[in-house]
């Protein structure tokens, strides 16, 4: 069946003496010229958008969001290349749902009082537990990080060791986490602005702590990716071969899952639970349409990701669109454009 399909999609081979096809290049150039013409025509608008965005940059929270977002998109795109190629695209989505569940649970812990705890516990334990819960509710990030990292390990274990396939395991865990989150929310605060922000993201959510966290994270991801580049390629391309030549493939998988978990948690409060996985998937997929070497795919994914984030953020500020959705829309546009270029080049 697959072979039949492949045969049907294959183009007629060029007969000897036939002129080489130039349709591809012509269409590509036409597309580029069209885009340039459009940009020239709208130059004043584009300039205005830039100036307006420049004015936004005087606000500290915008600068923070921009810094965190650019760094997180860089990490997400690099990790995304291996995740997509290893057929783990949905891991980011699954983990972000887990993150949502963990965040809502952390918030709900704020409603725990000393009197609300079972009476058979000693008073000291109850007071300590209540204080701990209050602390988690006030600063939910560490708690969420721990839960998401644990789930990432669990997902990897399940897909490696058991009969259940990786994608079903992810679907199982992500929907369960979402259900827990929704139940906990409805039992305590109800659907309020905070919960809405967790789902769809908020540009206001970034604190200066997040800036440092994301800077550290992206430094770690970049350094590891560069230092282990040959080994990451070997494990991504052919895990059995890599294992046979003594590469500790399990360790690399674990490392990538861990870094993905961190990236997802840092990014999800800005991009939203439902949209963060697009940062992981889109850049890698877009660059795979056009490029056919691992190195060029990786580099172009990083550039696309950072570029799309910047443009999406600018559009969201200037036209007051939701940030996360705006960035995903820009990524989608790039994906469509790259698919067109790829199709034309074939």
């Amino acid at each position: 069946m697959g072979e039949l399909l492949q045969k049907a999609l294959q183009r007629r081979p060029r007969r000897p003496g036939e002129k080489p096809r130039r349709g591809g290049a012509i269409t590509l150039w036409a597309l580029l010229i069209l885009m340039l013409a459009w940009a020239l025509f709208h130059l004043p608008d584009i300039g205005r958008a830039f100036t307006e965005f420049g004015a936004y940059l005087q606000y500290k929270f915008i600068r923070r969001a921009l810094a965190v977002g650019l760094l997180v998109s860089l990490c997400a795109s690099l990790l995304g290349v291996t995740l997509v190629l290893k057929r783990y695209s949905m891991i980011g989505d699954g983990l972000s749902h887990v993150g949502f569940g963990a965040l809502t649970v952390a918030m709900a812990l704020g409603f725990v009082t000393t009197d609300g705890l079972p009476a058979f516990l000693p008073a000291g334990v109850r007071a300590f537990a209540a204080r701990l819960c209050g602390g988690i509710a006030k600063n939910p990030l560490p708690f969420t990080l721990v839960v998401v990292v644990l789930c990432a390990f669990m997902l990897l274990r399940i897909s490696e060791r058991s009969r259940m396939r990786g994608d079903s395991a992810i679907a199982l865990i992500s929907t369960s986490a979402l259900a827990v989150g929704v139940i906990v929310t409805s039992m305590t605060s109800g659907m309020n602005v905070d919960v809405y922000n967790y789902m769809f993201g908020s540009i206001l959510a970034m604190s200066s702590g997040d800036v440092w966290l994301s800077a550290g994270l992206s430094a770690v991801v970049l350094v590891l990716f560069v230092l282990f580049y040959p080994r990451i390629f070997a494990v991504t391309f052919d895990e059995p071969f890599a294992r046979a030549t003594g590469v500790k493939a399990g360790g690399y998988n674990l490392l990538i899952a861990l870094l993905t978990a961190l990236t997802v948690v840092v990014g999800m409060r800005m991009m939203g639970t439902l949209l963060i996985s697009s940062l992981i998937i889109f850049p890698a997929l877009s660059s795979m349409r056009v490029f056919s070497r691992f190195k060029s795919v990786t580099i172009s994914a990083a550039l696309i990701s950072v570029g799309c984030f910047f443009v999406g953020m600018m559009l969201s500020c200037v036209y007051s669109l939701p940030t996360g959705a705006g960035i995903v829309a820009v990524n989608l546009a790039v994906f469509v454009a790259f698919s067109a270029i790829g199709a034309v080049r074939e």
Partner: peptide, 24 residues
């Protein structure tokens, strides 16, 4: 090894693939 389905659409040049044999 036997080829996997993931390799059919893997973006890598021949040179990159062959070089990865030097990892050990």
């Amino acid at each position: 090894p036997q080829q996997t389905a993931a390799q059919r659409d893997f973006p890598a040049s021949v040179e990159e693939v062959v070089l990865s044999g030097c990892v050990n």
